[in-house]
Computed example of a mutant assay.
Amino acid sequence: MHWFAVEASISTCTLNVYDSDVAVISDKQLQSFMKSWSTLFPSLLLQSQLFKDDPRLTIPPGAKRCKEFNVHRMPVDSVPQTKVSGDCGVYAIKFTPHSIAVAAAWGQGVPMSWNTPHEHDFVIKFTLALLSAPVT
């Protein structure tokens, strides 16, 4: 099993993939795996009614669904790479709340670091939710 973090950029209609171990899955395999998400995610946004007036998430006349999001694997030099294969889940768990916290703080002009107290609380809750989820 391989984990990576995905950031959805609604402004660019892109799913940015942060992969901490690029040797595990090729670009072609990643594109194939993310194909369903590139279609599903914009449809979920549209169905939520939160973006009903956003022209990027409309269904064009004659089409059955809205435009797919692009999938972009972030460059290796912008994503910390794990030294030991198998640490990808830890990276995804750590990166996700950090990314959310930085985005929220950036919108308010607050500087953030990797060790923000609120981020730590989020990581604990997120990890506990993952550990208590049923295994399928």
Rank of each mutant, 00 (worst) to 15 (best):
M1K: 06
W3N: 05
W3D: 03
W3V: 03
A5F: 08
V6S: 00
V6F: 02
V6D: 01
E7K: 11
A8F: 12
T12A: 09
T12G: 03
C13H: 10
C13R: 15
N16A: 08
V17W: 01
V17M: 02
Y18N: 00
D19R: 03
A23L: 11
A23H: 10
V24K: 09
I25E: 03
D27Q: 07
D27A: 10
K28L: 13
Q31I: 10
S32F: 07
W37F: 15
W37Q: 12
S38G: 15
P42K: 04
S43G: 10
S43T: 12
L44K: 14
L44C: 15
L45Y: 05
L45S: 06
L46Q: 13
L46P: 07
L50T: 12
L50I: 13
F51P: 02
K52N: 15
K52T: 13
D53V: 05
D53L: 09
D53F: 06
D53I: 03
D54Q: 12
P55Q: 07
P55N: 09
R56N: 13
T58P: 05
I59E: 07
I59K: 03
P60G: 05
P60C: 08
P60Y: 08
G62W: 03
A63D: 08
K64S: 13
R65K: 14
C66F: 07
K67I: 11
E68P: 07
F69R: 07
N70R: 14
H72G: 01
P75V: 02
V76P: 01
D77S: 06
S78Q: 14
V79R: 00
V79N: 00
V79D: 01
P80Y: 01
P80R: 01
P80G: 02
Q81M: 01
K83M: 08
K83I: 07
V84F: 08
V84Q: 10
S85A: 14
G86K: 10
D87V: 00
D87E: 06
D87F: 00
C88G: 00
V90T: 10
Y91S: 00
I93F: 01
I93M: 11
K94P: 01
K94L: 12
T96L: 13
T96A: 15
T96E: 06
H98T: 05
S99P: 03
I100Q: 08
A101P: 01
V102P: 01
A103P: 00
A103Q: 11
A104H: 10
A105Q: 11
G109S: 02
G109I: 01
V110G: 04
V110Y: 12
P111I: 02
M112S: 14
S113D: 04
W114Q: 04
N115L: 10
N115A: 12
T116V: 14
T116N: 14
T116F: 10
T116Q: 12
P117C: 02
E119T: 08
D121P: 05
D121R: 15
D121Q: 13
V123F: 07
V123W: 04
K125V: 07
F126H: 11
T127L: 11
T127E: 04
L128F: 09
A129Q: 12
A129F: 07
L130E: 05
L131C: 11
L131S: 09
L131D: 08
S132N: 14
A133T: 08
P134H: 04
P134F: 04
P134R: 02
V135N: 06
V135G: 04
T136W: 11
